[in-house]
Nucleic acid binder design. Structure first.
Length: 198
DNA sequence: TCATTAAAGTTAT
DNA sequence: ATAACTTTAATGA
């Protein structure tokens, strides 16, 4: 899952605080740190020429990010923004790599986290590509609900705006809104004062 | 079927 | 107040 906070501090890790909307790192920059979310949500995204946002991932507390790029000598391919106010543990690349050297167990955990992310990425790719708006939205909602303990219908409140859902699926907001409405008519989700329950 | 544009209503800061 | 989000409608690829 995530590396113990104590361990990160013991190798010189620092706590960074970000406000909602703050940039943590940006596309093209040099990867120098391992990041792990203590509190809040972080999004990884790209912007296309015309300014349209593509959200690659929305990360909950406990997840790490930026780690995959530490093993490469390449610039960041994405931006990281604080979605909410958040606290992030940050460890310098060299310290982080040294840590993996000393603690094989931790190295394995990082591998597992990495594996899980690529696995989900592959799934997402396949499910999002070349399908109708309704299908795309159904698929991401399935993936969002999957780790949830309560599997009952309408038990899961989608914790994202329609804008975000659109950016996650590569749709424009209006299309996402209409698709969500159609899904409500087909009784696959419920809307209560603008909140989506799936 | 979906993107785009425009316009207006609603909610959050 | 102002910005961000949501919704509806018209138009065109």
């Amino acid at each position: 899952m995530s590396i113990k906070t104590k361990l990160l501090h013991s190798v010189g890790g620092t706590e960074e605080h970000y406000h909602a909307g703050d940039c943590i790192f940006s596309e093209g920059g040099t990867p120098l740190f391992y990041y792990q979310i203590a509190e809040g949500n972080v999004k990884l995204n790209n912007y296309s020429e015309d300014g349209k946002e593509l959200i690659q991932n929305i990360l909950p507390p406990g997840s790490c990010f930026g780690e995959s790029m530490l093993f490469l000598k390449k610039p960041y391919p994405i931006n990281a923004f604080a979605l909410t106010d958040c606290t992030v543990l940050k460890v310098h690349r060299d310290k982080f790599l040294a840590l993996l050297d000393v603690y094989p167990h931790t190295a394995l955990e990082i591998c597992e986290a990495l594996s899980e992310k690529t696995y989900n990425k592959y799934l997402m790719m396949r499910k999002i590509s070349s399908k109708s708006a309704v299908e795309r939205l159904t698929e991401i909602m399935n993936m969002m609900k999957e780790p949830q303990p309560n599997k009952d219908k309408f038990s899961f409140e989608i914790p994202h705006t329609r804008q975000q859902l659109a950016s996650l699926t590569g749709l424009c907001v209006e299309t996402a809104i209409r698709a969500i409405k159609r899904m409500e008519e087909k009784n696959v989700l419920k809307i209560r004062n603008r909140k989506i329950f799936y």
